[in-house]
Amino acid sequence: MVTAAERVSSHKWGMAVDVDRCTGCQACVMACQTENNIPLSTEDIYRQKRTFAWIRIERYWYGDFPNVKARFIPIMCQHCENAPCEPVCPVFATYHNTEGMNVQIYNRCVGTRYCGAGCPYNVRFFNYWEPVWPSTLRNQLNPDVTIRSRGIMEKCSFCVQRIRRGVREAAQEDRDLVDGEIQTACTDACPTNALVFGDFNDDNSRVSIMSHDDRKYTHLDSLNTEPNVVYLAQIDATGGAIGEHE
């Protein structure tokens, strides 16, 4: 008999990003924005350098002129196993849960911003102001996600609301989860399937297979953060892998 707690914690959620497939279309950014009630990054916010983007596309140029090409890397919270943001939180608002996710508990957060300072990936965002949406967007907000008020740190949650719903629906129908059944907003939106979400505990899941690829690398490996987001390096026209060194 599997208890409800065991059913939830038997997973180790993670993501694989095939950089070779990413076209930099920003569909994931928009999907994340709408799914997770992320405050609007208006011009005013942008000028203060306080834009919110739980997932962002970083653009790099490579090659010599005139054969310059752009390379895009989607960066979101890496959900590090060895996260620098976690030990610095004085109130345990961010911690590593049993599903391999680095989670942020909004109602515990007191806004010290230590985690934001500790994060080497710059994927944590602080609500300096109460978020406001134009009246036309009020009905667009996702009722499954808390609206973070002023003074609270936020970051990519691996769309935990979708994970909860997926696990619940599988339990309701009394069956095991199928790989690919749970999709985060960004993987759902990605037109080239560059982003793949799944369970690392399942050896046959797409993320597990991709994480054993020769092209696999993780960001800022030297910091030993052990991210749960793995990247597959881009292949250039000559067949060599690029991007492992940045």
Partner: peptide, 13 residues
């Protein structure tokens, strides 16, 4: 008491 998950993200997210 019922071995249900007590992780914070069970209810808070």
């Amino acid at each position: 008491k019922n071995d249900a998950p007590t992780d914070c993200t069970t209810c808070h997210f």
